[in-house]
Nucleic acid binder design. Sequence first.
DNA 1: TGAGCATAGTTTTTT
DNA 2: ACTATGCTCA
Length: 794
Amino acid sequence: MTSNQILDLRKKVLEKEFSRMNNMQKEAVFHVDGPLLILAGAGSGKTTVLVNRIANIIRYGNAYASSQISPEFGELDLSAVNNFLAQGTPLPEETVARLAVNPCRPWQILAITFTNKAAGELKNRLVAMLGEPGNDIWASTFHSTCARLLRRDADRLGYSAHFTIYDTDDSRRLMKDCQKALGIDDKVLSYKAILSAISHAKDSMVLPDEFERQAGTDNRLAMIAKAYRLYQSRLKDADAMDFDDLICNCVLLLKNHPDVLDYYQNRFRYVMVDEYQDTNHAQYLLVNLLAQKSQNLCVVGDDDQSIYKFRGATIENILSFEKNFPKAKVIRLEQNYRSTKNILNAANAVIANNVSRKGKTLWTDNKTGDKIGVHTSFSEQDEAEQISKKILEEVANGRKFHDFAILYRMNSQSNTLERMFVKSGIPYRVIGGLRFYERKEIKDMIAYLSVINNPNDEIRLRRIINQPKRSIGDKTIAQASEIAEQVGESLYDVICHADEYEPLKRTAQKLLQFASTMKELVEAAEDETVRLSELYQMILDKTNYIEALRAAEGDEAQDRIENINELASNLIQYQEDNGEEASLSGFLEEVSLMTDIDNYDEDSDSVVMMTMHSAKGLEFPVVFLPGFEEGIFPGIQAIYNPTEIEEERRLAYVAITRAKEELYILNAESRMIFGSTVRNKPSRFIQEIPEELVETSRSRSWKKPQPGTVLPTSSRDARVASTEAARNFGPAEIARGSVPAVRFKPGDSVYHKTFGNGMVVSATPMGNDTLLEIAFDTIGTKKLMANFARLQKC
DNA sequence: TGAGCATAGTTTTTT
DNA sequence: ACTATGCTCA
């Protein structure tokens, strides 16, 4: 064979190996060396490209573009190659190795995403494609990547290896302390304003010194600079970093320690970043530092989906990639595999109204699909009812509950929907809002674990010192804290020796008692034979936390106790997943970098509700978008600001492109917001969708508008109105009676998918349906409609 | 020290 | 409407 023939054959193999990709996708997969910018539209298969590109790099290296031929190429098993080309018989590994040019080991690849969910999905797909070696690829979020690098070399920055990660609540508490120490009145300069200024500073790598210099004579900024400085020094004393510090400190580590930088630059031959449009300056620096030597940086993004500008993301990073890397190859993925033509065209039409964008038009081979349902209801309750009706109707026609998603602009919109769903017996889950790890009792338990792990963590120590109540008040804590500062010891140490300090005499007994409890727990934590779950149980036993909770809250305690047990099972899960590796600081890190959306599992059959922001990266067969009204979406604060309108429009684009098959957009003529009823005009985004893609309907006909803001007050009125509405909403008839009518009587034992086992207390016939009152074993008594509740007799 | 009442502030938030 | 926070008073 001539070398040209060899190269040709090799290309054929690669083309065949990745033949499921379209041409543009293949181009991205085969561009291995050198900077690469992939502009990937919504639903264009960017994760698939990322996965296949990594697989290509690991298996074949740069074989596609290279003219190098490995010396063993001559021993190539030609019949295996031909079988593969002709019938797709898998290639033996050694044949792959002979075809490869400079392939890469899995652990030399770093793939960074924004969410744990995205990282998890990437990892799963890599393992599915590459088998066990896929696990060695570093696929993680910015924050956990940084945490990992920092754990290894934290001492270089003056932190210990088991530093604590502060969440926003911890930061808030700490800043309040700083305000107090500096005599800053929150009304003059709020902790929120300070924290947000600091966060932005860190995003752009502005440290306290620099901040102070930039502040100049501006009083306000000078004050913030002081607070910033104090805040950082307290964080360091507590051996803690906030979220922004993880990135910021990591950049500092690499910048100021050439040997560390060198190590990672050699280690990571290929760096990939997903959702690049959402990176901030610090993240940009991090990525650039890591990839500077190899120049093998591949970023994937979509300027039209940049929706986190308010958090410091700078679209500049994507717009100027070509400037930073003049040799960068740019690939556009414009074929959408997710949505119907109608949905995609609607999204294209809306986003076309934005001026500042790179500009691209998605297209699809998918079928045209149904028109987009735009429904005007008369109130937010009605809106919720329309959605419930539609869902039940489609479920009766064979859809599953988990096919539906409701995406809204603000979390508070979920309340009305939730109430309606409970009433209709529709199983649902709300993602976001008050998160699991933000609940008081969970934060308390985490705080106990944190203090055991790192007694210097003053913020969390103060959180638990009187939780449960130990009669240790703010005064005492302030006093102890002052002493700690004076003698240069940590608060924890002062409390351990409370009897030695005159001012603490009166409460010394209580403090010492608390200290001895903590000491026992610390000892247990250090004891290798005590497992994490046992430690957790010890905390509960020794603090009497649950008993105190019951005493204080009575009935409400049940939920909280369940949460505490839920955390215990998380802990056990972590223990099982990590075996010998499991450690307290490991668990704490995982917890502090985890969010609700990570726990969202698609398997459970329920409707999912979340904000449009959280929905980025997800897709659903049927999507409802309630609240498309001027003042809600776009939000009131965006209406007079063209830049913000563009950001809102990008959010609309994200929301619309989540839908695969059906899309329903709703607006209400009037709605209750912040306590008062307002009448909003339909959102401009509705008008931006071409008429021919839309089928409109409304709950109240134009002909007989009710005067003023009189809304149906009795449930009977609402029912009459909404039956009429249901007729107008979408082409299909409501499937009444298609739900098998099972008879229930008081005393029956029943099972409900969401609520578990229970017993029927009462059954009241109501129209065609029966109102059941059911006492559930776990959550108490609920009222459900028999036809909608999907109950099983048992 | 803790309970009870007044008041303010309510967009989104991958970590 | 709702909730979380802060302030006052016992």
